[in-house]
Each structure stands twice: as C-alpha cells, then as structure tokens.
Amino acid sequence: MVYYAYFQGKAPDVTKKRFKTVWDIPKEELLAPGHRMCQGCGAAIVFRHLLKAVGKDVVIVQATGCVEVTTTVFPETAWRVPYIHVAFENAASVASGIAAAIKALKRKGVLPPDKKVKVVATAGDGGTFDIGMQALSGMLERGDDVMYVVYDNEAYMNTGIQRSSATPWGAWTTTTPVGKRWRGEWRWKKDIVGIALAHRVPYIATANPAYPLDLIEKFRRAFETEGPSLVHVLSPCPPGWRIPPDKTIEVAKLATLTGMWVNLEIVEGQPRVTVKVPKRKPVKVYLKMQGRFRHLRDEDIAFIQKVVDAEVERINKWVGEEAIGPVVEE
C-alpha cells in the first residue's frame, strides 16, 4: 500500500544486498573497545554494526544518553569517526545544521563536490520518542539529508530506568513501579514508524541485533538514502530489563519470534517484513525471561498476547502477506 504520493528524498536500490553473509561485514572496528557500556549492552552491538555499515566518511551526532556518556569520557573516546554530542533533545537539529554545512561548503568549493561525507544522528528512545520528537519531526519534514538511528532500550536508562513513551505495556520502570495501585507501565508504545511515515520519509526500517545481517544491510540502505531515513533498533539492556548480560541476543531474538517486535523495511511507502516468522512463539516466553515483567499475572500476559495478535494481523494486512504466522505452542 502506498501511503503518500511522494517522498522527501530517494531510497537506494533495495534489490541487491551488500551484506549477504557475516564475511561481508568489515572487520575494522570504528567503535573502539574499552568503552564503558555495561556487559551485554545491546546498544554496543548496534553501534559497532552501524559504523561497520557506514564506514569512515561519516559525522556522528549523538543525543545525551547511555551510549554518549559511556563512550566519550574525556580524555578518552571510543569514536574513530568524527563525533559530536550537543544535548539531549536536538540530535536531529544539530545533524540538519551539519547536513546544511556539507551542502553549502560543497557548493561553495570549500569541500570538493565529490567529497563523500554524510551525517548520522543517533539517540535513545527518550531522545527520540519524547524530548527529541520536535527536532526529529523538523528534520524529517524538511527532507534533510540525515540518517537517523534510534536505539530503543524502552526506557531512560542513563538516568536510572525511568519510563519513556517507548516503554512497553506492563513493564516495570523506576517511575512506573509495581505497587498497590500501579502495576508497571499502563500505556502502549508509541508508533515511531507511523510517525516517520507520516513525514513521507523514503527509507524507514526496524531492526534487531539478533539479526545482524538484516541490521547492517538496513543501516547501509538508510545511509545511502538521499534525504532523511530512520532506523528503529531494539536494544536490550540487561540492567534495565532485568536480564543476565549473556541473554541479550536471546531476548532480542524472542522479541521477533513472538511478534512483539517485527523487522520491517518501508521503502518509499512500500512495507515489507524482512525477517518472517512462519510459526510464532507465545509472548510469555519473551516476557518470562525479563525481570521487568516479573509481576505480570496470567491475565496480563493474555492481554498482551491479544494485543500482539491484533498487531500482527494489522502488519500482515499492511504488507499483503502472512509474514508473521500464528502462535504455535511448543
């Protein structure tokens, strides 16, 4: 289904894959080891792959948050590419300014016209869904040549696991505690993909570190888009999700296998599920792994299952095939 007649730019050729096997992934590490992210941090995997996909000819803008504070503690830095952090809510605007500067300086002969350099704005769910929403909307709406990556750990982790509008229903956080009256978060996650689509963004994708080839290929495509692109990446957080650090990939994988997270690619309005799940697992296997859902009762889990079923149906209809199959109990 085409949502809009025209888009704010041009998606790259998506008929060919650059990253077909893990051997296609560059060995060079542009995110240096020795950063201070927690053991098992999903975001560390996300950013390593991001830099492998985009290479050196990039400027990274990063919002305040976990990754920023753990990778740039003076006098050290984990970034082997140019990097700027300005504030929490303005990664998209800073990136727009850089994109404008690249354009102007090329046109005016300060940079060679064929100089390859592109800006990538990155922020957490808080820096994107909440406080950075306005700047993001402005950047997308103007059609600026900016790739935007949101690593979504489903809460404000840097400040101590407070809820954001990306926190899923039922999740415990320090501001949606489990007590007599409250039983974790009671609102559904904001639909960031729908918001990007409403801005006629030519390339939008969702990805998950449990599927690294899918992830890195999407990063590559978003980077090669002319105009704005957005990649929304699930980013498990062991302390915030209350999982052991060695379960990051397992939990991320279950998110997709249960249909709680769907790996999508929307190219100029055409949606596609890139990681199909013919036999879905029940959501409880995903929820039960995580301490943040420990308090959920059977009826809560049944409720989440119902909503996920409906969401899966909606997505299948949208992409025009049964990309995500029915729940099959093992």
Partner: peptide, 19 residues
C-alpha cells in the same frame, strides 16, 4: 527549523563542521 532551540542547535552543528 521548527524552533529556536533547533535554530541554535543547527547553527552549532554547522559551525562545528567548519561553516
């Protein structure tokens, strides 16, 4: 830009890039 916060942010980005 959609706000002054973004106006100065964009200018900060541009100047940081050398414009």
């Amino acid at each position: 830009v959609e706000s002054e916060h973004s106006a100065l942010s964009a200018v900060v980005g541009a100047v940081a890039f050398g414009a």
